[in-house]
Design a protein around this nucleic acid. Structure first.
Lengths: 237, 237
DNA sequence: GATGATTTGTACGTATGTATA
DNA sequence: ATATACATACGTACAAATCAT
């Protein structure tokens, strides 16, 4: 065991954050840093569903005590990313097939809701931004760069959430999206789907910019519906 | 300093639970018990928005150390009931007026969604249960028992969430409802609104049992819309 | 604005409950 | 089924940041 008597903070440098981002205030405690890191690892798939989160192991890995590790895990539990049960090790959430399908369904409706509100409420500058992001997606789709498409696709949807002018609804949508991401990784494997996705975006953008709420809702539902249909490889419990 | 810090009743013996409820597994740790108690106090309004949650004070009140208190507070923070900021005392969430309105709007859409799915998916026994709860609400509405109406009203909506056959969507809805409750207390002050609410329920139930999804959605939106309109007394930030 | 008081954040030890042989 | 090993739950001590004066 470590006779290491260092009680000072670990060598882990205070996050040399790109300090120009007001949206991500940079973690001010170990617990928060851990929470963000673990959430990211789970969403990115680095920590797969079902993986056991051993407190001591994580404490060693991040060079902190178990206390902040526990706090991070509990918060992730409350937000649904990990499954935590009393006196048992926490594990990365591993919902049943039915639950995942339910989450997809909920996400489809939430995104559709956002699109509908966006059609009613987006300002001109917001529309311009949406259009800009959408257009920047086109060459990526053509090139078939699935990785990059995913990234900008996030921005595209984010622009719509913002345009819905409802922070709470946007939060529900983002959280749902985060929780689903581990189960929708393989959805953009081929260029055909990328192109199709982009075409669907095109229609959604048009409806939103023309203020056609009902159409935006329907088109977004159809769009997410396709993504949903693309979900396949997940072994049910 | 006051040694008599008892501003609320002490934690009450843990094992006195009515052990017949499978839905509420009875807390097996101090942290969980605290979380449930605090959540209840916040939703019930006993802990008003803006109230400071002092860790040591809570630890004394519940006769535990700060550790489980912190865990409970962090979990409540993740679920949005309290506002937690690094190195500052946590406070009961006190969203701006705009945020509250956004939550109402989101709740309206979520409940409507549930009603729509319920119309498509409810089994006969579930419909029977919904009808039973609805009917049990009638005399309460007539009597003008606002308190009891609120309680059974929860059951009514819960029956619809269950009927939607989407656990995740149901969870989003219940959590949203919980977060809004502290700001919608005065909504059933007069008998007129109680009767009106019950009449709206009647229409929703009819649409659901006839499998009319679109109608159920519209009627539920209108119903929650009224509740939303009844929201008044909240000083914006 | 500086300094002391108060409160939160973290480390660590021990008790208790769970899982496994 | 009993015992052993091990991970979590909680209590306590101290460090660091915030606040109040």
């Amino acid at each position: 065991m470590a006779k290491n008597g260092v009680t000072m903070r670990p060598p882990a440098a205070p996050p040399a954050e790109t300090a120009g981002e007001p949206g991500v205030p940079a973690p001010r405690t170990h617990a928060e840093r851990l929470r963000l890191q673990l959430a990211d690892d789970i969403v990115s798939g680095e920590l797969a569903p079902g993986v056991v989160l051993d407190e001591m192991e994580l404490a060693r890995r991040f060079q902190v005590s178990r206390t902040p590790v526990r706090e991070a895990i509990r918060q992730l539990g409350a937000s649904g990313l990990v499954d935590v049960r009393p006196h048992r090790s926490a594990v990365v959430a591993r919902p049943s097939r039915g639950q995942v399908l339910g989450m997809f369904e909920a996400l489809r409706e939430l995104e559709a809701l956002c699109a509908g509100f966006a059609a009613e409420r987006m300002t001109k500058p917001e529309q311009a931004e949406l259009l800009r992001v959408h257009r920047s997606l086109k060459p990526v789709a053509k090139a078939g760069d699935s990785q990059r498409y995913h990234e900008i696709n996030e921005q595209f949807h984010a622009a719509i959430w913002v345009g819905a002018h409802n922070v709470y609804l946007a939060k529900l949508t983002t959280e749902t999206r985060a929780r689903i991401t581990p189960f929708s990784r393989a959805q953009f494997r081929n260029m055909g789907r990328l192109a199709k996705s982009h075409a669907e975006h095109e229609a959604v953008v048009a409806a939103i910019c023309k203020g056609q709420s009902a159409e935006a809702v329907a088109l977004m539902k159809a769009h997410i519906g396709y993504v949903h249909d693309a979900y396949v490889g997940y072994r049910p419990e």
